[in-house]
């Protein structure tokens, strides 16, 4: 190959590679992104019925219930305007607590209960949704003691 053709191949190769990567990335992003909704949006019917999404808010105080000895747990997620019942089966994260922020992954059932397959609590959550962050800050301010910012 002459240097010129080689350079041309190189440039075309890179361009093609970048184009393919960009296209595939966007496609995969569109198909696999999970959107975030708070209880008010879910109650208003904005959340999809047939798709997994992320539900975020605070765990309402006194709302965590489980049948003794069972992995199944029920709690209520609130954004201080609306509430949504959540059901989850499995091990809850260390930082899951009543009155703390939580993000649940799952889908909404026909009975209006959000069935979670994954539950993340404050620290696990790297993308703290700003809505929840703001809500958390308000809560922290009212509860006298200051909270630590993330690690």
């Amino acid at each position: 190959m002459t240097p010129r053709r080689r350079r041309l191949t190189l440039v075309l190769g890179i361009l093609a590679g970048v184009a393919i990567a960009g296209g595939l990335t966007l496609r995969a992003l569109r198909a696999n992104v999970m959107f975030f909704f708070d209880p008010s949006q879910v109650v208003a019917g904005e959340a999809p019925l047939d798709q997994r999404f992320r539900l975020g808010g605070m765990v309402e105080k006194g709302s965590v219930h489980r049948a003794p000895g069972s992995l199944e747990v029920d709690f209520v997620v609130t954004d201080f305007r609306h509430e949504l019942p959540v059901r989850y089966t499995g091990v809850l994260p260390d930082l899951f607590r009543e009155g703390q922020g939580v993000v649940a992954h799952g889908r909404i059932g026909t009975n209006g209960v959000f069935v979670a397959d994954e539950v993340l609590a404050k620290h696990d959550e790297k993308y703290m949704p700003p809505e929840v962050a703001r809500a958390l800050k308000k809560e922290a301010a009212s509860a006298a003691g200051g909270t630590r910012t993330g690690s």
């Binding site: 595939l24 995969a28 992104v33 975030f36 700003p130």
Partner: peptide, 21 residues
């Protein structure tokens, strides 16, 4: 977030298959 679009997250379902390509 910067563009004011709905808050979204990207995780395993995106990375695992895409990265293998």
């Amino acid at each position: 977030d910067a563009l004011g679009l709905p808050t979204l997250s990207v995780g395993l379902p995106y990375f695992n298959p895409t990265f293998l390509m």
